[in-house]
Amino acid sequence: MPDKLPTQPGPLDAADRRIINALQGNFPLCDEPYRHVAEQLGMSESDLLARLRMMLDARVLTRFGPMFQIERMGGTFVLAAMKIPEEDFERIAAIVNSLPEVAHNYQREHALNMWFVLATETQGGIVAAIKKLERLTSLPVLAFPKEREYFVEMKLTA
């Protein structure tokens, strides 16, 4: 189901915010990593686990775990965009979303009004997905492959 924007901020308390800020990387690779983090945050392990579970259930966190870089495994991410007539937007959105290769999809305010990320395990998979989308929608798909990345890092503060 599409999410309406803007979503109301969740009822995060100070401890939740400390967890989010502390856990944006460097999760320890030791036997009891949650206990280790909980000690640093001055809370119990069970409290940390309960809060993580609550924030995942409430979708304050999209996920918790390793973030894989598909490019390093031989796979590819490509940003793509389409110009879709307003009256046909919902129908085309459903077609685009139906492809498993479409990882993220956003409606944006521009003549190019749909922007999505294609993620596939091979370069050829991207080309095939674009061809398939163009065939299913009868609309052109513009691809914007990343040519270079400039210092990307999670910098959001809760």
Partner: peptide, 14 residues
Amino acid sequence: LIRRIGAVPNHYAL
């Protein structure tokens, strides 16, 4: 292969 291990916040919820 792994960029980092941690929490991925939902921007909107923050």
